[in-house]
Design a protein around this nucleic acid. Structure first.
Length: 597
RNA sequence: GGUCCUGUAGCUCAACUGGAUAGAGCAACUGCCUUCUAAGCAGUAGGUUUCAGGUUCGAGUCCUGACAGGAUCACCA
């Protein structure tokens, strides 16, 4: 039994024995004791004064006395106002620590058989990935890892938006201005090359609109009738008809993009188990519209368009099929949801998509619920906030986008400069040094984007956002590297720190040692909460706390100069456990930790 | 305009879901490297939690109303 339930059970017994009242255990909950007070767990007595009929202080005292008498793990307690602070014995913490070190795998929870699909990334193929995609990808990847560590079976999926008017724009511009350029001939990465033509299209199109307006055409009309826009529209029609030449160009350009994306994904360290392409799925969902009509979930208007009336659920009416019988975005998503379920029989399906689509997913999920899909209750939109720049929102057309490839490259340069300034690469080979810069750069970037609560909007300042000190990825990586140095030394002097009989001789703990054990024991709970809340930021925060506490321990307490062998052994064992926990936790964030830095 | 989200130190973020004197990091200032990695540690300073009411033993957290910022409300995706 877990210690906090043991304590609450005993508190329950205390109420029965001392105050003659039977309270349900669920309402008796503990909280961690605040740092400025002594103790590990705190029981707040205020809500129960009506049962004790005594002052807060006295009620706390009496419950505390009962606990101390009846629970061998309880060492002392103190009562401040209505707060009963409980301290456990060093012996208890040491026993728990030893159990942890001998545990097979303390970093993952038992298997659950729950199947979860996590869809993330979902890029458009007309332009390269940017900072916003980084947050999306890191979140999706990390969430997947966290859910795996929670024992779930996870399928990472990526629904690529590879068709539509936007890609036609790049294609038209390429036809008009491309002169047969290719990634090979230009030396430009494929996704950037296609993105370049998307930008060219936009500029040329705007020029055309301007010319038309100067000729006296109204803006609305000019926008519709500009030759380039017409060509793009025509191309979309040709594509849908399967025109060989159009399809061939489309394939060529998309493949350029995929080569580019592959390189970017590789550097980001993310991957997928299942790819979906909108060119395959965009026609799905029409039969569901028919089904919905029959079930009376949808209705048809005079012009033939089909609508879902969600006013009973507090939402509006939503179009699900155009009057010309073609489908819209949500139709496609309905079909894709069915497809995913057919493919994987997932109990849960998580969509990692920005909060600008909150309404869309609200509507989608309610429609699927009305259509009585068995998976409907397992749908979840992990809605994350936008990443803003100091100048405001990123706008690709205004050139204020922070490109993902550029940013990662800049981060590596910063890591290189910083590391060399600190003179930390003595004894590193060229390759090792490069590998380290990469690890640090990506660690800093990922940690920066993941430490913030996903649903909150966040600010990214390219000049100063990503630091290497304080609450950062490199700080945690550094802590790991420090411990690895200790472990190397322990090995070198042949200290048998895992020897149980040596550890058994340790009888008492320093404060920071105990704090570390308490934190380490809390890891499974943190993992569980991060999984149920879909929040990598909880893991990130925990990592920081652990690293911080370890650095305090490191500064305060000597290891190898300690006289008693059992203390040397225990402190190395404790360090080893912290290092393993950091490594495991950072892996959940998609962050590697170095041996040296 | 309707709906939804957000508002906490100069800046970036926490606050265990209603508990104690609201905490970290950055920036500023003061100490600590001949000792296991100073990308570190210890400390100082920084707050009317946007504002006004309400609920109760107790509110950053819950309810109401302002104010500010953002998103969304397409036969776009």
């Amino acid at each position: 039994m877990d210690i906090s339930t043991k304590i609450t059970r005993s508190i329950h017994d205390a109420f029965t024995a001392v105050f003659a009242v039977e309270l349900p255990e669920q309402i008796l909950s503990l909280q961690p004791t605040r740092k400025e007070f002594e103790g590990t767990f705190t029981f707040v007595v205020f809500p129960f004064l009506k049962y004790t009929k005594k002052s807060p202080e006295q009620s706390g005292q009496e419950i505390g006395n009962y606990l101390k008498e009846n629970l061998e793990e309880v060492a002392t307690f103190n009562v401040v106002k209505g707060f009963l602070n409980i301290s456990l014995t060093d012996h208890y913490w040491l026993v728990e620590f030893k159990a942890m070190t001998s545990s097979e795998n303390p970093f993952a929870l038992p298997q659950t058989k729950v199947k979860v699909m996590v869809e993330y990334s979902s890029p458009n193929t007309n332009k390269p990935l940017h900072l916003g995609h980084l947050r999306n990808n890191f979140l999706g990847f990390s969430l997947s890892e966290i859910l795996k560590a929670n024992g779930h079976h996870v399928v990472k999926s990526n629904l690529v938006n590879d068709r539509g008017i936007h890609i036609c724009k790049s294609m038209v511009a390429y036809q008009e201005f491309g002169k047969g350029e290719s990634p090979e001939s230009s030396g430009i990465k494929g996704d950037h090359l296609v993105g370049k033509y998307y930008v060219i299209f936009d500029a040329a199109y705007k020029a055309e609109v301007k010319v038309l307006m100067e000729k006296g055409v109204e803006e609305e009309k000019a926008k519709k009738e500009a030759p380039l826009m017409c060509k793009a529209q025509e191309m979309l029609v040709l594509w849908e008809k399967g025109d060989p030449e159009t399809v061939s160009l489309w394939k060529t350009m998309n493949n350029w993009v995929y080569e580019g994306f592959d390189a970017t994904y590789k550097r980001m360290g993310v991957d997928f188990d299942q790819m979906y392409y909108e060119s395959d799925t965009y026609l799905l969902g029409k039969d569901m519209v028919e089904e919905g009509l029959q079930k009376g979930v949808f209705y048809k208007k005079e012009n033939g368009s089909v609508w879902a009336d969600l006013s009973d659920k507090g939402l509006d009416e939503k179009l699900v099929l155009r009057s010309d019988g073609t489908s819209v975005y949500i139709t496609q998503d309905m079909g894709t949801a069915d497809l995913k379920y057919r493919d994987h029989k997932n109990d849960k399906s998580i969509y990692v998509v920005g909060n600008e689509q909150d309404y869309h997913f609200d509507v989608l999920f309610k429609i699927l619920e009305k259509l009585e899909r068995p998976y409907a209750k397992g749908l979840h939109h992990l809605s994350y906030g936008m990443v803003d720049l100091p100048s405001g929102k990123m706008k690709s057309r205004e050139g204020t986008v922070v490109d993902a490839d550029d940013l990662m490259a800049e981060m590596v340069e910063t890591a290189r400069r910083h590391t060399q300034e600190l003179g930390k690469i003595d004894g590193f080979s060229e390759q090792e040094a490069e590998a380290l810069y990469e690890i640090l750069a990506l660690g800093a970037l990922k940690y920066f984007l993941l430490k913030v609560d996903p649903k909150k909007r966040m600010l990214f300042n390219p000049e100063e956002s990503i630091e290497f000190q304080g609450n950062t990825g490199p700080f945690i990586q550094y802590t790991h590297a420090r411990i690895r140095a200790i472990l190397r030394k322990a090995e070198q002097i042949e200290l048998d720190f895992n020897n149980p009989s040596l550890l058994n001789k340790v009888a008492e703990l320093q404060e920071t040692e105990k704090n570390l054990i308490v934190l380490l024991l809390d890891y499974p709970q943190k993992l569980k909460t991060a999984g149920s809340e879909y929040s990598p930021s909880l893991i990130a925060q925990y990592m920081f706390e652990l690293a911080k506490e370890y650095n305090r321990f490191y500064a305060e307490i000597p290891i190898f100069s300690e006289a008693k062998e059992q203390h040397r052994a225990f402190r190395v064992a404790l360090s080893a456990q912290v290092a393993q926990t950091i490594k495991a936790g950072m892996k959940l964030l998609g962050i590697e930790v170095p041996e040296k830095m």
